[in-house]
Simulated scan of single mutants.
Amino acid sequence: MSRRFAQSVKLIVLIIGAFVMMFPFVWMLATSLKTLPESVAIPPILLPDTPQWSNYAEALRTAPFGLYFRNSILVAGLGTLLTLILTVLAAYAFTIYEFRGKTVFFFLCLATMMVPSELLIIQNFITISRLHWVNTFQGMIIPTLASGFYIYMMREYFMQVPSVLYRAAKVDGCGDLRYLLRVMIPMNKNAIATIGILTFISQWNSFIWPLMVSKDDAHRVMAIGLLHFRDAVSSQVNLQMAGATIVLLPMLLFYLAFHKQIIEGVSRGGIKG
């Protein structure tokens, strides 16, 4: 009886927690379909009398969300690809090769995990300013590519591959690059996919750095575009919520498509090996 009661309490707590988490999204979607008087009514109105789908058309006319979406895909996609290349090559070097200072370099790589990214923003901005990369895509992407955590994570997976495979491949005349492409990457494709998904989400949701670097619509991503859209529509709450829904929708679809890999990647991130 006590066990059933405990399970019931747990279920109730989970339902309440789910409601608390979902309510802001439900409110955003409902408000995006309201008229302006309904969106600012006191007491608040949960559902509109007649859904105003024209709010989305008005939002798309007010701001170039299509351009923002293209920029976000470019920044997140290219940033993810380059991060994966750097991560795989660095982890492969730390796993396979023996060279002077290997341990020191690896611990320096791990040490970057203890430095908050916010501390590097000013110095990174000074660097890209000197390179004349302000308001460019390379200035937005390149400073965010290296990740000590992902290199460490990838190295842990690579180390689980038996070293005898590498020696056997060398005996058969297989080069290091071919061994990486034919053996290491296929055997760890799930880990690489997980890192890619998490990197894409991080790049897509990035806000502070793109805000500092981008100066016009041609280089603004979705999150920054939404900020300027909010200023453009001023106090029209219904249009603000329509714009927020447009920005949220691509990532929501991405999560629904890859939610299993995302949950697996997050859970593995806290498990050694």
Rank of each mutant, 00 (worst) to 15 (best):
F229V: 07
M140E: 00
T144H: 07
Y179C: 02
P162T: 10
A111P: 06
I126E: 12
F137S: 04
I195R: 00
V233A: 01
L110E: 11
Q236L: 13
Y97P: 01
T127L: 12
K215S: 13
L120T: 15
V213K: 04
W133A: 05
D231W: 11
C174F: 08
I185R: 01
V213W: 01
T103C: 00
I121N: 08
F137M: 01
H219R: 13
D176A: 14
P210T: 09
C109F: 00
D216H: 09
F158Y: 13
K102L: 07
R220M: 13
I141C: 01
L227R: 12
C174Q: 10
V183G: 08
M114I: 12
P210L: 09
G101T: 09
E98Q: 14
I141M: 07
H228C: 03
Q138G: 00
I126A: 13
G175N: 06
V164F: 01
P116R: 09
I121F: 03
T199G: 08
K170F: 07
Q203W: 09
G101D: 08
N190V: 14
H132Q: 14
P210G: 00
M113K: 10
G139T: 03
D176S: 15
G225I: 05
Y152S: 02
T194E: 06
L198I: 07
F149Y: 15
S234V: 12
L227D: 03
S117N: 12
P186V: 06
I224V: 15
T136F: 01
R182W: 09
M113V: 12
Q138T: 14
V183K: 02
D172I: 06
L119T: 12
M222Y: 08
H219I: 08
S235I: 10
L180T: 07
W133N: 01
V134K: 03
S214N: 05
M159H: 07
T136M: 00
K102T: 08
T136S: 11
I208C: 03
I224C: 03
D172Y: 09
F105M: 14
S163T: 12
I126Y: 11
A218M: 11
K189E: 10
I208M: 14
K170H: 10
W209Q: 00
F125Y: 15
L108Y: 10
A168I: 00
K102Y: 07
K215W: 06
D216S: 15
G139P: 01
C174S: 10
L145Y: 07
